[in-house]
Every structure is written in C-alpha cells, then in structure tokens.
Design a protein around this nucleic acid. Sequence first.
RNA 1: GGCCCAUUCGUCUAGCGGUUAGGACACCGGCCUCUCACGCCGGUAACAGGGGUUCGAGUCCCCUAUGGGUCACCA
Length: 465
Amino acid sequence: MVVTRFAPSPTGYLHIGGLRTALYNYLWARKNHGKFLLRIEDTDLKRNSKEAAKAIEEAFNWTGLSYDGDPIYQSQRFDIYKEYIQKLLDENKAYYCYMTKEELDELRKEQMARKERPRYDGRYRDFKGEPPKGVEPVVRIKVPQGETIEFEDGIKGKVSVKVDDVMDDFIIARSDGTPTYNFVVAIDDALMGITDVIRGDDHLSNTPKQIVVYKALGFDIPKFYHVPMILNPQGKKLSKRDGAMDVMEYKRMGYLPEALLNFLVRLGWSYGDQEIFSMEEMLRLFDPHDINKSASAYNAEKLLWLNAHYIKNAPYERLIKELEFFGVHIDDHDKKEILIDSLKERSKTLKEMAEAALKILKEPASYDEKAVKKFLKEENIEILKKFKEALKERENLHLPVDYEEFVKEFLDKNELKLKNLAQPLRIALVGDTVSPSIYDVLSIVGKEGIIKRIEKLLNHLQEEN
RNA sequence: GGCCCAUUCGUCUAGCGGUUAGGACACCGGCCUCUCACGCCGGUAACAGGGGUUCGAGUCCCCUAUGGGUCACCA
C-alpha cells in the first residue's frame, strides 16, 4: 500500500508549487489505490493554522483534489513528540545540552574566524557532571559519527553524504521543550505510515538528518522523491513578485482547474510527446520516477494555451456555470448556446470570455473612433439605413443561418459585397471591429436589438456632425 | 565558503551508445476568412565548455563553468 502526504506549513494560501507537489502525491497515492494524507506543519505557533487549512481546503475543492481522513496538526501532537524525545534520552541516543545561545554564537564566531565550518562542538555529548544552574537545556540527538548516509532518491538517484560533513548533533527539542522540524517530520511520517515522501528538493539536504532520526527510533525509512523547484520565467526562484502564487488567484483570472493541473503535471514530468492529460490519464500514467531532475521555469503562455484548449472543449453548460463567477448570467437567454459556442473558440480565459459575452449582450456604451472613421463613410451609413429598413420588413429570423440568408439576399438585391456591410454593422452591434461571426452576433442580439443598436449608432453619428 | 543537486531550441520536454536530435508553447511565413480568433500547412531555433572511454557519444566517466538548494533553539 502506498501512503503519501502533503505537508504544507501554514502560510495563508496554497501556492502553485505546493499544488504541484500535492498533485504528485495525490496522483501517486490514488493510482496505487493507497492513501493521500494532509498534515499541517504548524509547530511554529505564531502562524494561524486554521486559516491555512481553510485555504488549502478551498484550493483542493476547486481543483478537485481530495485527501483521506482528517488533516493532522502537528501543534496538537506535542505529547507524542515529547514521548519520543524522552525515549531517545532514556536510551542515551540524545542528551541535554546546556550551552546557551550566546555561547553557541560565540563558538560559531570563533570557528568562522578560523575559517572552519560553524558547528556545535559536542561538548555536552557525554557530559556527566553537575549541569550549570539557570540554563534551560535543549535536547540534541547523538548523530553517529564517521558514517556515510546513503539513500536512493526516486528522482535524483543515489544520494550519499558523509555525516561529519553535513551535520552536528542537531537540536531536536528547544529549551522551551518544543520539538524541531527535522525531528517531527520523521516521527509523523513514520507514525502516519507514509511509504513515499514526494516533496520539494529544497528538502533534499534535510533528508540525511531525518534518516538519523528514523534510525535512532528504529522506524522504517520511506522512499524519497525530491522534485525540482519551479522557477519564474527568468529562471529564478518563484516568488510573490512573480504574480500569481495563490492557487485561487488562477480562478479569479479565469483559468479552468483542469488546465492548471495539466500545466503543473507537465512541469517536470512528461509522457512521451503527450501534452494534454485528463485526470484519468494522469492517474493512469503518472509515475514519480519519471519526474525530471532539473528545475523548470514557469511558462505563462503554455498555461494560457492549455486553458484555451480546455475552454474550447468544455460543454456549454459547464461554461455557462463558470461564467457566472464573472458576472455573466445567461442561463435563460434563448441564444446562450450560440453565444458560448462562438466565444469559446476565441477565449483564452473565462474572464476574457465573460468580457466578450458582455460586449455582445449589452448595447455598446461608446464607439471606437478609429473604426468609425474608417468604416462609417457616407455610403456605409446609407447601407446601414437600408439594412435596417429591410430588416424591419423581415419576419422569422432566429438562427445565424436565417440571418446569413437574409444578409445575402439583402446584398444581392443592392449589388453589394459583404465587405461593404460587415464592419459598419459590427460597429453598430458591438462598438468596434472585433466580434465573433456577424451572423452569430445578429442572431444573439435579435431583430429588435439590432434595430435599436443601428439607430443608436446613427444618432451618435448625427451628434458628431 | 562546505556539502548536495542540476545543465537538449527563448520556454516545457522526447531521447535511455549508432536519430536528417522528435513534439509542444511562443515567434515568423502561408492558407481559410465578414473582423478577431479557431483550424490547417510550412519555417527559424538546442545537446554549456574541455578532456577521456568506445569502431561510434546528447546518451558512460572526470574536470571546469554556470544555475539552484541547504548549512538555525524556521518549516
């Protein structure tokens, strides 16, 4: 059984890199019919973990990810950690260290002056005397000296470090008794039965420390997969300055969750030449062993392209529902299907789509000056007037094909080309020269609306002169 | 600075000793066309550098360079 976990520290929102590691853990667990657990790493009590849990909940709901059971809060497990600290103390695998912070700082300063690597010197490792008064001790773990720690990372391959190079007897409990990160991570992963740890590769150099804890406590060591970071478009570390970090911001910008997930899964992972992955395909094909070894840069254009793809292929009921978030309510509009179908071909985001819809649904509030100048010369105005009159006489106009037929008849009768009519008419309908097919727009606006809009434009032109 | 990790078109990537180094996004042409898009067709563009190993290296090894991560009584 595969058990994975997502273990964010509470920062207030779920960011895009976090979502990717959550997705990887989710996919791997679900693919293997295992469990995907959530753990909030809130041992730093300063931050509000409730809020963070809510934010994660919200982002998971939106993207469709789900975790098993209830989230685990490290802040509620201090008793457990205390127990294991005591166990190590009792077994002489850990010890109290009475060195004060000031003394430690002093030591480090001296070591640096001598160009040595700053590290705790182990002075209390085998201390047997009378402890100094007035010092609340920390607890340090006895790191086995002279050893080499090796582990097989599912992504990076074999990783091997000499213990003496990378760690001293690190602190597992602060002087106030609270446990530290590398200690609790190991304990929780072991107690939660985590078999596969998929996390950011900023944790790669923590792993040996955690392995020391696993070994000291006699726990089984899980498999590790350290996934490379996501870089910003400049190839630097992704930060808040790079725009959207909060997953929910993508919703506000008009992205479909499946586009975001597809984008994220392909960032660092691939399956041959395939670009489009449904959730079912991800579930079937994803394997953390295939994740790339190197960091990948965030490519906003590709995300946009994917989003456009998913919009194009979404059923229109779905899009109608999604557009409500952006203030477009067309559920009872009789031409809603035509509207959606013609808009989804040309929208990269839902937000864009909503704006385009409103542009058609509402009478133009103003007219694009350059367009007016270019396309509304005297002769065009006459054509528009004629068109309006002809339209008044005509009945049974509903679908785009009806309008197409009508327009063709009108053009034939007056010996005109579509070019003579299309742009002037488009300006009357939407205010400028950009819109979906003129027949679609005519159909959506409807006979009465068209007449009103042509008259409005005509009035506007008269006022101008 | 020590340690660890990485390096194929601008970007995401395929490649797992023998390929005209493939695909996708973006970009540039063309077609389609009532505008804008969609779509279709075509194009530019990459193995960081240097040494080995090998009949043969993008693929294996070493060095250099560059980038990243990490070295807390943060997580």
